[in-house]
Each structure stands twice: as structure tokens, then as C-alpha cells.
Amino acid sequence: MRIANTLFPLALVANAAVASSWFSNAVYNKWHETELERWLSDHDVPYPTPTDRKDLEKLVQKNWHTYMVEPYQAWDTEKLTGYLKQKGLETKESAEETRDSLIARVRSAWYESEDKAQQDWINVNDWIFDTWTDNQLKAFCDRHRIPVPQPRKRDTLLKKARENYEAVAQKAGGASTYPGNWLYESWSESDLKEWLDKHGFPVPQPTARDKLIASVRRNSRLAYLRMQEAAKTSKKAAQDAHTTLTDKLIDSWSESQLKELCDKNNIPIPQGTTLNQLRAVVRKHRAEIAGDTAADTLGAAATKATGNARTGYERAWDRVVCGWEWAVGQVKAGGDAACGRAEDAMGKRHKEL
């Protein structure tokens, strides 16, 4: 009993120390007063004026979890249910499931942990540009005289914008961790409204420019997380389609074609291997045959080959055997745009099959 009585206060001290450590390392711990005020204003948290920095920080701390870690706490039942369906999770009739139980389920399936959210707000430039259009990235680079080599592809634009983010913030005399309006100087009001519409956020009324920027800034992280989730879902669908498609094509090959493919790629085939065993070997080594272990590259290469087929499966796979390296090179050289077109073509072809 004495041991328990001794350990209990020690546990309280330890918990307090952990909480104190987290608070002292919180991203907003180093924010300037203007950043703290900006965050509170963006999230409609009232604060008295004048207020010293310490009180502002306490207000941010009090509301941080609600707005930045678990924003779904403010969602209605319809939005909570919609999120769960989007994640492929079954939902009961609203009358059978309470709002609290829905929140608990959304929490367990949320995009990121609290630690991840904390870390990513330290490195804003790593993700904040990802929801921008190519034209908006170009305008940002042009406005701040950031040289971008030709051709000005999206990957290059993103890289240059990220690399120069801190320098632009310093030049503007603003903070970079929770950026001010300087970040959106090159955006028109229609750009701001279009971004909000595209990502499913209501346009504030009245639509003053400051209000529009505040809404875009406040929702940028959630928009980025949604976009990442959609990209993963899309990629998985493309990979599933690619696997189905290549399986159908492999099944259409003759024994001699399978052996020829294995010989060309130095894949040993034991004597007495049956046709079905040959097919299994090709399936096992198809990533190596493509010259790249990335499934999406293999899928794009297979799509390129089948897309050019003139007389069905045999001709398609003939092209695969003779042109893997060329196809993969084309996909790599084409970047995101080529992959996007390849995935679209693959999906269309898969439906036809």
C-alpha cells in the first residue's frame, strides 16, 4: 500500500513533465505575436486587445487540438458518416449510431496522428504548395523572381517554390510557420474562391479578400490530406487494374513466348516446367522484367504496350517483350503527366477487357 501511495504522486509528476515538455516543444511556442493573433482570427477564436504574448499562446494551446488535430469534432453527423464511407468503412443508420461513436470511429481512421500534425506544421513548405495549380506556382515564382529552368514542369515548380519559401517569407517580413497574406499575393480573388470550391470548403460571406485568404490558409492542411488520400486510392485502383490486365495477358501467352521472355531477362527455367508454372514465374518476376520494381511504372509500361496492340493479346505482349525498356523510359521521361495519362488509358482498357 505504501508503494502504491508513493508511485501515484510520482506518476502525476511524470505526466505533468511530459505535458510540459510537449507544450514547450509545440510549434506555436516560437510563433510571433502576429502569428498567434492570425491563427486565432483565422479560427474565429476571440481574444481581448491588448493581450500579451503569453496569453495569446495559452489561447492557441487551448484550441489547437480542436482545430488542428481533431477538426472533425465540429462536424455534423452527415459529414462524419460521409468521411467513414469515403474510407470504405461501413456505417449504421444514423438513429443507431450516436455522434460520439461516429467521432470515435473517425478518430481511429483519421489521416494523421497528433505528432505528425505537429511536425508538419513546423515544415509548412513541404506540403502547402501541393494543392496549388501549375499556374499559381508559376505566378508565385515569377512574382518573387525565382528562376525555374525550362521546361517548367510541376515537379520543378514545386521544388523551386519549396526551396525559396523561407527566403520569400523573410523578404516579406513575415513568418513562415503560419504564413501571412504575403503567400497569396499572386492569387486573385477568383483564384481563392476557386480553390475553396474545388476542395469543398464554403466561400465566406462577405467575400473580402482577407477573409478568403484566411479560409484558404485555415483549410490548407485538410485539403492537402484529402488530396494525399485520393492519390493513394487512385494509385491502388490503377495497380489493381494493372494486375488484372497483366494476368489476362500472361494467360494468353503460348509456352514458347513465355520461355522467350524468361530467356531474354535471364530468368532460369528448370527442365520440365509446365505452362502454368511458367506463367507463375513470369508473374513473380514481372517487376524485374519491366526494369523497375515500382508497380505503377510496370503498370504504365504494360498500358503503353497494350494500348498500341493492333491484333489483341499476342501482339500486345509481343510489344511488351520487344519494348519494355522503351516503354518504361517514356513513362519516366513523361513524369506525372505521362503517368496520369497511362493510368487513365489503363483504366479504360481494363473496362474494355
Rank of each mutant, 00 (worst) to 15 (best):
Q73F: 10
C339W: 10
M1H: 11
K198I: 02
V45D: 03
S113D: 08
I250C: 05
R154Q: 03
S188Q: 06
K232A: 15
T98E: 05
A337Q: 12
S20G: 15
Q150H: 10
T34Q: 11
C339N: 13
K193V: 12
P71K: 06
E343L: 05
I213R: 04
I213M: 02
S188V: 06
A309T: 10
L56E: 02
G312K: 05
R145M: 10
T34M: 08
K284E: 14
T98I: 04
W182R: 03
E314P: 10
L40S: 00
E78A: 14
T77Q: 11
T131I: 14
A342P: 02
T243V: 09
I3M: 12
V13A: 15
P48T: 00
D191T: 07
K58C: 00
M227F: 10
L275E: 09
G329W: 00
R310K: 15
A290E: 04
T177R: 13
S234W: 13
V328S: 15
L158Y: 05
W127T: 08
L258T: 03
E229H: 14
K264T: 01
E90C: 02
T311P: 06
P204Q: 00
A16Q: 13
I269N: 04
K304A: 12
P149I: 06
L80H: 03
E166R: 10
A287F: 10
P179I: 02
T51I: 00
F201H: 08
T293W: 07
T81E: 08
Q86F: 13
V69F: 04
W187R: 04
V124Q: 11
Q73I: 09
N181F: 13
I213Y: 04
R315Q: 15
P48I: 02
W324L: 03
T34E: 14
L102H: 05
L196V: 05
A338P: 04
A241M: 07
V168L: 01
A11E: 14
L80T: 02
L157W: 01
E112P: 04
W127V: 06
A172T: 00
A333D: 10
N15C: 15
E314C: 09
L196S: 03
T49Y: 02
E352W: 06
H144F: 14
P204N: 03
H65K: 14
T297D: 12
I213H: 01
A208W: 07
A280F: 02
L249I: 12
G174K: 09
M227L: 14
E70H: 10
S24N: 06
R107C: 04
T311I: 08
W121H: 15
T243F: 13
V69I: 13
E163Q: 11
W182A: 02
E260K: 01
W121G: 01
P9D: 06
G334M: 00
R154H: 07
